[in-house]
Design a protein around this nucleic acid. Structure first.
Lengths: 251, 251
DNA sequence: AAGACCAATAGTCACTACGACTATAAAGAG
DNA sequence: CTCTTTATAGTCGTAGTGACTATTGGTCTT
């Protein structure tokens, strides 16, 4: 693989093509693992044990191995951190790459950030290694290590935007869910309340967004009329989109 | 900066935190520089002079220098390739990072791809170095080197999508433009014809998208009634979006 | 057991945005 | 002058949606 590497003291290649003279960077992945627990948006964080930022919370992540793509590494890290045995079905989305030269005070680390969406997170997660891992509410996820605050904010923004024009919301839900639960996903991520009948009309009026569970199955969450159960449908995009109430724009 | 680096034979760090043991990768940027010339979407390509893919066309790009972020490197490369003296105003958008282990047959190269939008491209571009650089139509941009076909397709898709909900289209236009020119941007990128009065109504009805040039300036492109000139406005997003005609969805 | 409460579901009404048009205005070409 | 070409103005019908009210079918309380 990456056999012998000549460190050019100056990585600049005159014509931009001599790919044998380069400055090696460390490449990592960082994961913003989001879920909804107790009606709140929560994020999986790990507590750092070493300097820098010892004692601070950080996004889980790790190095990309020589034989891995960033996506593969992200999925491996996700499995390690959550303790789930099958993460192949989970939605994993590449956010962007963060490459500020001083983002890691020790050395040059370029990180590829991903957002992952979990339906019902395992309470006793953690890969079994020494470091502490916990679900924390998004709002109170204090100052994180490195530039992870920025990454987390970007993940939130990306997921919020994708809810508008994709069927991604079902990724936060268990295999069978009620429309109320689906609506709570939108309300929790966007931080706004939605009109229930209108939400229902929109979702059911979009072919392929959800499909009813045939057996007149019903779920009892507590009080109130039992709700019908639905599964995620075939569709992946929403046309026309389900726009959040005036994030900006006209009065 | 990136002082001494110990190559771990196994880059895997047990707890994902030992950032001093890592496998170094080369990090590059690749640019999909798009423009509209003669009513067609065109892309800036360079001809490779070395193996692999000698003689093939490829996206311009190069290494990220030790003191640079990927964005800085991309802007530097953009300036070098286009020969423009001021690229600080140009829209540069990070697409995603491509990190398949075998994407470069020689060694491990991770590339951060960007899309750049140019208004009126300089005919005699090229950074002055040996390699050939040319504008080629997007449609006939044959098989490119490495995974650049994929990157280019992703750039096209991203730009097409962003036209729907952002004011990005003005980035393809000179400082002052007619609504007909702006419409041509949409039609060229999307590959579909739009109704002119409706397009006009939508653009003018969106506050801050464009603002008329006060002096009753007009431009003569040839025949027909002269068109009023507009400048890009303050707004950056479009609410509600300007959706392209049924890319999929309901009949 | 009767009534209070609660959430899901059904349906109404008005307004906005948009697709599909037709009509008019202002230039150059012949 | 007339024809062509392009910009601009305006009309009409409808899908989609925000803001509601009403009904249904359960649990919880007393």
């Amino acid at each position: 693989m990456s056999a012998s590497v000549d460190h050019a003291s100056n990585g600049n290649s005159p014509d931009g093509y001599d790919k044998y003279a380069y400055e090696p960077f460390a490449v990592t992945v960082d994961l913003a693992v989001l879920t909804i627990r107790n009606g709140a948006l929560q994020v999986l964080l790990v507590e750092r044990g070493q300097e820098p930022y010892a004692g601070h919370w950080a996004l889980p992540g790790g190095f990309v191995l020589p034989h891995e793509s960033a996506e593969t590494a992200a999925r491996r890290e996700l499995a390690e951190e959550t303790g789930l045995e099958d993460v192949s079905e989970l939605h994993l989305e590449q956010l962007r790459t963060y490459s500020e030269p001083d983002r890691d005070p020790r050395m040059r680390v370029v990180t590829v950030a991903f957002a992952a969406l979990l339906p019902h997170p395992p309470e006793p997660h953690g890969g079994g290694d020494a470091k502490q891992a916990r679900w924390l509410p998004y709002d109170t996820a204090g100052p994180l290590a490195f530039d992870h605050d920025r990454i987390l904010a970007d993940a939130h923004e990306r997921v919020g935007a994708k809810l508008e024009y994709s069927c991604l919301a079902t990724s936060f839900c268990p295999p069978e869910f009620t429309l109320g639960e689906l609506q709570q996903v939108y309300e929790t991520v966007w931080g706004t309340a939605l009109d229930r009948p209108n939400f229902r009309r929109k979702v059911l009026g979009t072919p392929g967004f959800v499909e009813p569970v045939p057996g007149a199955a019903r779920l009892t969450g507590g009080r109130g009329k039992p709700a019908a159960l639905y599964r995620a449908g075939e569709a992946t995009t929403l046309h026309p989109p389900l726009l959040r109430p005036t994030p900006e724009g006209r009065p």
